[in-house]
Amino acid sequence: MTEAQTISGADPHYNYGYLDEQTKRMVRRALLKAVAIPGYQVPFGSREMPLARGWGTGGIQITAALIGPSDCLKVIDQGADDTTNAVSIRNFFARVTGGRTTQKTAEATIIQTRHRIPEKPLRADQILVYQVPQPEPLRKLEPSEVETRNMHAWEEYGLMQVRLYEDIARFGHVATTYAYPVMVNERYIASPTPIPKFDNPKMDMMPALQLFGAGREKRVYAIPPFTRVRSLDFEDHPFTVQSWDKPCELCGSRLSYLDEVIVDDHGARIFVCSDTDYCEERRQDGEGA
């Protein structure tokens, strides 16, 4: 397929990528600032999109501001390409850009995600766009935006560490399993969005650019390629990730994040890869059952 043909597939009622060019420029300016100050939440003029707030409008606006005719878009939700909202967002971009989409991690130039980082390591020529429900990692500790912005400005992060301390005192370990806070470039504490903490180490020194969009909260932030991302912990209670006793039922992987699936009325359960593309590829390569 040539580029001209892909563009001609776009819905003629809307500008390419839905947003007008002025708005795209505004989003890109905010993104440039975000890249320049890793982990800092940049306010931006978030627009109302035809998908609901909380359903990925931040990520959608970033993707809309970046996507061009040579791009190939992959959209995942919970690691899967076929979940309803991932389908809905992919269809939206297919309609307003007429561009190429894929379910293959390796083929994509832009990957928009909700709640997961693909298992396959990302490359420097890829961009990972996160949908962010709550960009403020301190929000649960401090409801006021005025206060949390000050806490970031003054690097007053003792309270976040207190939260981890309280978990260890009560449970013996940190009881946060997703949206586990990270320190970006040793300056700003950022929320990795509700990805499982299993994915946190992938953010560290990732070759791909990571962009985060919170539409409802009107913030973007970024982790530039090859940036240090450290999950908060204590020297004597170091950060650890989840592990499973069993491998994936379908592909046999012991290295991937697994979803629990209930298979009968008695609560019997099996575990399968959350990243469907990774799982499928492994099975095609002859792994697993």
Partner: peptide, 29 residues
Amino acid sequence: MIEASGFVEHLKLPHYVDFQGELELVRKI
């Protein structure tokens, strides 16, 4: 209400991944 309804109703979206984390944690504790 556009923002509020979107965010409240987004709870209809799948949350398997985060829930899985919580499930494991509660079992462990």
